[in-house]
Design a protein around this nucleic acid. Structure first.
Length: 562
RNA sequence: GUGCCCGUAGCUUAAUGGAUAGAGCGCAGCCCUGCGGAGGCUGAGAUUGAGAGUUCAAGUCUCUCCGGGCACACCA
C-alpha cells in the first residue's frame, strides 16, 4: 500500500517536473520540532492522504518552482515533510538582500488616524501607546508600497476645554494672576492640566458652576469674542507642546484635523439628513441603531451642539474630500469599539461609496496598577515621566553617557515593550516593571544589530555580489534555521500587515536575533575557513538588514554603537 | 440585562486547526586566552479559567458556565 503510494507520488511529481531524489512514507521519528530535517512542512487532511495526485498538487502549490526537492517524508496521519536543497535558501536570502527586503507594491492610499491627544489636558501613556502603535502601522503599510496619510485629530473644543478654561479664567486670571510664571511649554501644559482637573471636579460638585461651564462651552462654540483669545492662546500651547513630542517620537503627520473644524461640517451633514438617516427625539438628533443590531447614539444634543458623533461624521467627509482614500483606518482605545460600529454604519448610510473603506482598530487600554487612568482625576502617568524614569534605569544598568544614544535606547525599550504583544490586549502598566531592558526587549535587538555591524566592519572585503556562495552541505542546525528564518521574513511581514499586528514583527525579530546570538556564540565567523566564512557573513549581513528594517517598522531607530 | 474584547508557568507573554505549548523576567547552577558577556548554555516551573461539542488533529473553531475589562442617549 505504502510502496504503491510512494511510487505513484514520485511519478506524479516527475510528471509535474519535480525531480525528487527520495520519498519516504511512514517515518514519524523527527528531531526536535522537525526543524532540522524539515525546512518546510505541509499538513494535509486524511481525506486526501492516499491520493498521490492531490498530495503532489499540495506540494507543488507550496514549493516555488525553482526549488529542488531533495526528499519527501509522508507521515500519517497527514504530514508531509520535505527537504529543499540548502542552495535554495541561500539563493532566497541573496535575493532578499538584493531587493532590500522590499515586496510587491500594494499602491493604495490609506488615511491612518492615530495619536489624537486633546488640547487643554496632558496626554497620558494611553496616548503614547496610540502614537507608537499608529506610527508602526503606518510604516508597515508604507513598507508594503502603500501611500499612507498620517492624520492626527485633536479635540480642541468641547466640554473638557470649557472645564479647563473656566478654571483658568475664574480661579486664576480673575484673581489677578497672570501667565508670567509659566516659563516653559511643559509648565503651561501642566497648568492647563491642573485647570482641567479643577474644572472637572467643580463641574461634578457644584450645580451653578456646572451651568457656567456649560454656558462657556456654548460661547466657545460660537467663537464669542470674550473667550476666543484665551481659547486660541491656550490651545496653541498644547499644540506646540505636542509637536515637540511627536518629533521626539519620530512621527511626522501629514495633516492635523481639529474638532473645532469638523463640528460645523458634521452638524451640517446631520441636519441635511434629518428624517432620512437621523431622527429627532427629546430635542436631540439621534441615530437609531437598533434596526442594524447596534445601539442608539446622539449626534446633535438638545442644546443644538454637535456631539463627538457628528464631528466624526464631519471628519470622515473631510478626509474623503481631501484624499479620496482607498481605505481609512481609525485607531482608538478599544473602549470605543461599539461606538465605532455605529459611526461606520452611519457613514456607510450617508456615503454609500465609502462602504467597506472605513475601518476601526481598537487597541488595548493602558491601565495602572492603581486602576484606570483618568486625566479628569489626575490618576495618570504621562509620557514624559515615563521617558525620564526609563532613561534613568538604562543609564544605571548600561552605563550610557551619550545623551542622544541614551535617548535612542530609551525609546527603543519603550516602543518595543508596547509593541511586542497583541494590540487588543489591555496593558496593566507598572512603571518599574513594564519596560523590559534585557531579554526580549528593544535594547537586546539593538545590541544584536550592533554586533552584526561590528562583525561586518571587521570582515573588510566581504562583497556579496562577487561571491558565488553555493553551499550544498550545511551541516549545522543554527545556520539552516537562520537561513530558513530569514527566508520567511516577507510572510511574517504580510501577516503583520493583514492583522494590523506589529507584535508579529517584534516576535519575528526577537526569534531571529536569538538564533543569531546562539549561532554567534557557537561558531567562529571571521576565523572560519573560506566558504564557511562567506556563508556566515551572508547570514550576518541578512540579519543586520532585517533587524534594521524590522526595527524601523516598529518606529525604532538603530544605533551604531552601544 | 444586551453586545464586544481578554483568561496560557509566580509575573509579562508566543504559537496560518497540526507533531514534545515556545520565550523573556524572576529563581538555582554554568560559560570570558574568542568576532562586543547589554550575550550564551543547563535546570526547576503549564491538566492553556472550567466543562461539553465539531475534527484524523483544538490554546486556536462552536456552545454553556466562571473570572477580568469595555460599551450601551445628549462627555470625548
Amino acid at each position: 500500500m505504502e510502496e504503491k503510494l510512494k511510487k505513484s507520488l514520485k511519478k506524479t511529481l516527475n510528471d509535474l517536473n519535480y525531480q525528487v531524489e527520495e520519498i519516504i512514507i511512514g517515518i514519524p521519528k523527527l528531531t526536535h520540532h522537525g526543524d532540522f530535517y524539515t525546512p518546510l512542512a505541509l499538513q494535509i487532511g486524511k481525506k486526501i492522504k492516499k491520493n498521490p495526485l492531490l498530495i503532489a498538487q499540495e506540494i507543488v502549490k507550496k514549493i516555488p518552482s525553482m526549488a529542488e526537492v531533495k526528499k519527501i517524508i509522508v507521515v500519517p496521519p497527514g504530514f508531509i515533510n520535505f527537504y529543499l536543497s540548502d542552495g535554495f535558501f541561500v539563493d532566497k536570502v541573496k535575493q532578499l538582500i538584493n531587493k532590500s527586503f522590499k515586496l510587491k507594491k500594494e499602491n493604495k492610499t490609506i488615511v491612518l488616524e492615530f495619536g489624537q491627544p486633546n488640547t487643554h489636558k496632558i496626554p497620558h501613556i494611553g496616548h503614547l501607546y496610540s502614537y507608537i502603535y499608529g506610527e508602526s502601522l503606518a510604516r508597515i503599510l508604507e513598507f508594503l508600497g502603500n501611500k499612507v496619510i498620517r492624520v492626527n485629530y485633536q479635540g480642541d473644543i468641547g466640554l473638557h476645554v470649557a472645564k479647563c478654561l473656566w478654571a483658568v479664567k475664574n480661579q486664576f486670571l480673575e484673581k489677578g494672576k497672570n501667565f508670567n510664571s509659566l516659563k516653559t511649554l511643559k509648565d503651561k501644559v501642566d497648568f492647563l492640566q491642573k485647570g482641567y482637573q479643577e474644572g472637572s471636579q467643580l463641574y461634578e460638585e457644584n450645580k451653578s458652576i456646572k451651568k457656567e461651564i456649560d454656558q462657556l462651552n456654548l460661547k466657545i462654540y460660537q467663537k464669542d469674542s470674550k473667550i476666543i483669545d484665551l481659547w486660541q492662546k491656550t490651545r496653541q500651547w498644547s499644540l506646540d507642546f505636542y509637536k515637540i513630542f511627536e518629533k521626539k517620537l519620530g512621527i511626522k503627520y501629514d495633516r492635523y484635523y481639529f474638532e473645532s473644524q469638523t463640528a460645523k461640517v458634521g452638524k451640517k451633514i446631520i441636519l441635511e439628513n434629518l428624517g432620512k438617516v437621523f431622527e429627532e427625539s427629546n430635542q436631540a438628533i439621534i441615530f437609531k441603531g437598533e434596526k442594524h443590531n447596534l445601539h442608539t447614539r446622539v449626534f446633535i444634543n438638545s442644546y443644538g451642539n454637535p456631539t463627538y458623533e457628528a464631528k466624526d461624521i464631519g471628519l470622515a467627509y473631510l478626509k474623503n474630500k481631501d484624499y479620496q482614500f482607498d481605505l481609512s483606518i481609525i485607531t482608538t482605545a478599544k473602549e470605543q469599539n461599539e461606538y465605532w460600529k455605529v459611526i461606520i454604519k452611519v457613514i456607510e448610510l450617508l456615503f454609500p461609496h465609502l462602504k467597506n473603506k472605513i475601518s476601526h482598530l481598537g487597541f488595548g487600554m493602558v491601565n495602572l496598577t492603581s486602576g484606570k487612568m483618568s486625566s479628569r482625576s489626575g490618576n495618570i502617568i504621562d509620557p514624559f515621566t515615563l521617558t525620564e524614569e526609563v532613561k534613568k534605569e538604562i543609564k544605571k544598568t548600561f552605563l550610557v553617557k551619550d545623551e542622544s544614544l541614551l535617548e535612542k535606547i530609551t525609546f527603543a525599550a519603550i516602543k518595543y515593550s508596547f509593541l511586542n504583544s497583541d494590540y487588543k490586549k489591555n496593558i496593566i502598566f507598572d512603571l518599574k516593571k513594564s519596560i523590559a531592558k534585557e531579554g526580549n526587549s528593544g535594547p537586546y535587538l539593538l545590541y544584536t544589530y550592533v554586533r552584526t555591524k561590528s562583525v561586518l566592519t571587521k570582515s573588510e572585503n566581504f562583497n556579496l555580489q562577487e561571491k558565488k556562495l553555493n553551499f550544498i552541505n550545511i551541516n549545522n542546525n543554527e545556520e539552516r534555521k537562520l537561513l530558513k528564518k530569514i527566508s520567511f521574513f516577507s510572510s511574517f511581514l504580510i501577516k503583520a500587515k493583514e492583522t494590523y499586528s506589529p507584535n508579529i514583527i517584534a516576535n519575528y525579530l526577537y526569534e531571529l536575533a536569538s538564533l543569531y546570538n546562539l549561532f554567534y556564540q557557537k561558531y567562529p565567523i571571521l576565523k572560519a575557513e573560506e566558504s564557511l566564512r562567506e556563508l556566515r557573513l551572508l547570514i550576518t549581513l541578512a540579519v543586520k538588514e532585517i533587524i534594521k528594517n524590522g526595527l524601523n517598522l516598529l518606529g525604532i531607530e538603530t544605533v551604531e554603537k552601544m
